[in-house]
Design a protein around this nucleic acid. Structure first.
Lengths: 204, 204
DNA sequence: TTAATATTTAATCAAATGATTAAAATATTT
DNA sequence: AAATATTTTAATCATTTGATTAAATATTAA
């Protein structure tokens, strides 16, 4: 019964639980995760999870907020910046995202899956965040290709960057590609995507 | 105790359960789905589900095999065909996929999520299927751009086609795009993707 | 040290959930 | 219409699972 008061909890144990939760939640999703899986992964007693975090739900919120921050945090400033060109933005975003996703390859499927399972819950968290439609990037695209909906190019950029990570499990099965070659390809894409994007922008 | 024998089961009820299972499983995933959800959605007694399908697991396998067939079935023949050009293949695949995904928008996230949760289980089901690497499409790409890994263009094509559907829940939140406009965009992409793909193929 | 506080554990609870059973209802066949 | 087979239901089981509790252990402060 110590938890309630001033609580200066042992960082080490608390962080062990959080780290285990990050791993298990992102790998299996909320519904498929058992609190006992997390406890075992963390090497702690199950009751400790509730002692430190009150509930599975609370712990999950901490984890997914972190992951959404990783997935969405950097894109806002990048697309808002009206001092960089389209080309610079795409290069910068591709470089940053691919690095991030190489280090956290299961974030997109995790986040998108949880949003699917609970759209209302994330509506507030996101809505106020980044207004893509008002961004400098959006305006620059509209100016460059007044004949096309800028959203197409947003889709294109994110698809080129993110899809390989989402589709990797499947593509690994149907292509038999080795993990190292996959990583090499991802690295190559950091610069290629800029070129491809500009080519699409000019295409007719 | 009728089930075991020759069993010519009432198609109508069995199909009601399967239809409900398709809906609930694809919307929430295996782990988040309760057999009671399916029974309620189908308007039948819970015991009927087990009477007809033995178990949640068995019913799930039927559903996901259908969905994987939808997701992967058409691509094999299309990319194997050595009588069609790159351009024709891309146009054909984009057209077919976008139509399919407009009718079944939650298939990709569902299938990819379940593969993530249980890679071993799907390894066999898929491995023997479509050998992309030996396909005519793959060879044509290698010939056209000997300097680049053809897998890049496979990623690109699938990313342009599929990602908008996977990312829609999120992009709907951050762009506030209306469903009708989203559908319009998807339809536009059926022809645009071919143009974009060819532009990327030429890009330097 | 001792007393207070914080952390950890084992045991257990209550609800949810997949599955089964036996019997009732309905349809089919003879 | 009777007999048989099939389909459906209500009730219940057994297990899993998130959560709690009370006691044990460690840590800190006086």
């Amino acid at each position: 019964m110590a938890k309630v008061k001033g609580a200066k909890p042992d960082l080490s144990t608390e962080e062990k639980i959080k780290e285990a939760a990050r791993k298990v939640f992102t790998q299996k999703g909320y519904a498929a995760t058992r609190t006992r899986d997390i406890a075992e992964e963390a090497g702690i007693n199950l009751a400790l999870l509730n002692y430190y975090f009150r509930s599975k739900e609370k712990l999950f919120e901490i984890v997914i907020l972190e992951k959404m921050q990783i997935l969405l945090g950097k894109i806002g400033p990048a697309i808002m910046d009206d001092r960089t060109s389209i080309e610079q933005k795409v290069e910068q975003i591709a470089e940053h995202y691919i690095n991030t996703l190489l280090a956290n390859p299961d974030i997109p499927l995790f986040v998108l899956g949880e949003i699917r399972n609970n759209p209302d819950k994330f509506a507030n968290m996101i809505r106020t965040k980044t207004k893509i439609v008002d961004s400098a990037f959006f305006k620059q695209l509209a100016e460059r290709r007044p004949d096309m909906d800028p959203l197409h190019f947003i889709f294109n950029m994110l698809g080129l960057i993110i899809f390989p990570f989402i589709g990797k499990p499947l593509l690994q099965l149907i292509t038999g590609i080795k993990p190292e070659r996959a990583a090499t390809l991802m690295n190559e894409r950091k610069t290629l995507i800029k070129t491809w994007f500009l080519a699409m922008l000019e295409a007719n």
